[in-house]
Amino acid sequence: MTSTIIVTGAGGVGKTTLSAALGAAISQRGRSTLVLTIDPAKRLADALGIRELNDAPTRITGAQDMWAAMLDASASWEAIVHRYADPEVGKRLLANPYFQALAERFPAAQSYAAGERMAGYIETKQFDVIIVDTPPSGGGIEFFQAPAMANNLISGKLLKWLTGSNLPGRGLLYRFTARPMLRIADTVLGGPMLSDITDFLLDLRTMHDTISVRSRTIEGYLRQATTIVATTADPTPIHETRRFFNELGGVDIKPKAIMFNRKLPGSWIDAADRPIRDVPDEALRAKAKANLQAWAGEARRQSDAADEISARYHVPVYPIPWTSPPPQDLEQLRDLIADTRIVEDLGF
């Protein structure tokens, strides 16, 4: 059976690096591992030292059985349509300008396509572990909410409003545009837009049964997955971490761990107050001491933040050391989390 780890969190906290580190560590334990990024930016490729990532899994050289792939949203949507739509409807959908814009340009649609892709990989049973690196911020939570959103889209709140509670056939549709409300909407919004969208929704609606079953399946996989929230001590990521815990509860998902990235050694805090005896050069001593004190202040701030979130959410917080330069290769990626036991604790 394939296990899934979802790494979520605010932008800039190093989610992709942490996902890659988890992938490197888990694959070293002899498990076939895929790291899947749905971030539009090509971060994972950078962290793994591959020039380009695409929709098909690329094998990472130097790792035992580690793969990486980036989601191409439009390719995934095409696959969904080919799989679930009647061929003729499928052809019409793929040619529809709304469909193309929806698939390529808008993050919410990407989140659904990503969930679908994740489910696809789980079902091929090709990998023992799949690690999903979600896009930052609202996008990260959206990943968990996307199946329900897709279901709403297909079951057609808008379509019902446009056409009444009984779903008409295509031919009957335009009869409804005679209704006064729609006539006003036509004038105000540009009527053809509404008709075009309605056409699009009607086609989409033919996939209703399969997509609604499918989105429930994806929700099931999301609930079974191990969710990890990545953060740093900075105010924005901490704020986002609170949001993730509050809002993920709404989709019945409880994160199992927090990876607290870029943690400084706690030993610096006490050391900063101790007198320095063994540096004879007075000017250097002053500079080095000022430097240590500045960083100790940062270490103190970090440790307060880590204590607070650990007390608030009752999940283990794994400190990940701040390394400069950041991990450059697989070995450094593995080293990054080697001291934490997070892989063992989570049962991978």
């Binding site: 050694p265 050391a271 540096v279 080095a288 001491k289 430097n291 240590l292 701040w322």
Partner: peptide
């Protein structure tokens, strides 16, 4: 720590 913090910086 003095040296560690300086190295990091």
């Amino acid at each position: 720590s003095l040296q560690e913090a300086a190295t990091m910086q």
